[in-house]
């Protein structure tokens, strides 16, 4: 990445409002509903943080999506990817990026600093599931309690499906999540949880159901070594969120682009690649169940 936002954000934070104002002025003067890409691309790009809530390693797809967004927004777009959710969250909270596709868990934690922009629709619903998967070669593992004193793979400590929900499920069964497994580790991506379980490195793991299903479609050999033994209740799908400080107009523009994506021919094609039906606006309460689980786990334990 040529323009590392982490480096130049300190300067970018101050002149932000002025630049947006200029842009608005320009749009009025030319009388267009959206600015010309050529002009806006000289401006600082729109920075969108991505996390492994989807298969963020498909570089070709990301290029097409970025170009589509640039066309729709009339502005240069930069995708920002980091090794963990936390780094992306920090970039967002410190305004070094404008938007991010985050998990519901960090969203509920920093709800007052962030704004919900749009929620993806998967299989017609704005929800997804956490899958508890096990090594297929160990058929005696049939439920969560069978995994006691085993090695377990989490995806990311800031993931709902890959960390929060399994912790909650263990706690629900009356166990201490910190001591239930013999050993746990983070793979920092759902896809790698699947790989770790399939390779036998971990006896079980928790993954984003959407990622598992998508991999089952495009790389069936990856999920073949795993077996889903439990599905969670539906949770709010990882949403696109915005930093609270970004101008309303920018947020609206971005939201409009996402919401109209399914109606656009190229956008619909991109959505098909993501195995999503489109985007929708959702009420904040969609994520209350995640917030409740987080609160439950933070209770002092004996």
């Amino acid at each position: 990445m040529k323009n590392d936002p982490a480096i130049n954000t300190d300067m970018a934070a101050a002149p932000f409002s002025r630049r947006t104002a200029l842009k608005a002025l320009f749009a009025q003067a030319v009388g267009l509903s959206f600015p010309l890409p050529g002009h806006s691309s000289v401006d600082a790009p729109l920075r969108i943080g991505l996390t492994p809530v989807f298969l963020d390693d498909q570089i070709g797809f990301l290029t097409h999506w970025r170009e589509w967004l640039e066309r729709k927004l009339g502005q240069r777009v930069q995708f920002v990817q980091r090794g963990s959710y936390r780094e992306v969250i920090e970039l967002l909270r410190t305004s070094k990026i404008d938007f991010a596709w985050l998990c519901g868990y960090p969203y509920v934690r920093y709800r007052d600093e962030l704004r919900l922009v749009a929620v993806p629709l998967w299989r017609g619903e704005p929800t997804y599931y956490s899958y508890l998967i096990v090594d297929r070669s160990q058929p005696q593992l049939r439920r969560l309690t069978n995994l006691r004193r085993k090695v377990f793979a989490y995806s990311d400590p800031d993931s709902n499906s890959g960390f929060l929900y399994p912790q909650y499920a263990i706690a629900q069964s009356g166990e201490n999540p910190a001591k239930f497994f013999a050993r746990t580790f983070f793979t920092w991506a759902h896809r790698k949880v699947i790989e770790a379980v399939a390779a036998g490195l971990a006896a079980g793991g928790a993954v984003d159901g959407y990622v598992w299903e998508m991999l089952a479609e495009i790389h069936p050999q990856l999920v073949q070594g795993t077996q889903i033994i439990e599905r969670s209740p539906p949770f709010g799908f990882p949403p696109f969120v915005a930093n609270k400080n970004i101008p309303e107009a920018l947020e609206t523009r971005f939201r409009t682009a996402l919401l109209n994506m399914a109606d656009d021919a190229n956008g619909a094609q991109l959505l098909r690649l993501l195995r999503l039906d489109g985007f929708t606006t959702a009420d904040d309460t969609l994520y209350d169940s995640i917030a409740w689980m987080a609160a439950y786990l933070n209770l002092p334990r004996t």
């Binding site: 793979a153 050993r183 580790f185 983070f186 793979t187 920092w188 790698k192 770790a196 390779a199 490195l201």
Partner: peptide, 12 residues
């Protein structure tokens, strides 16, 4: 850093 997965990826 107790990063089992990265160690595994290196071995792999």
């Amino acid at each position: 850093h107790d990063d089992v997965w990265r160690a595994f990826e290196i071995l792999r």
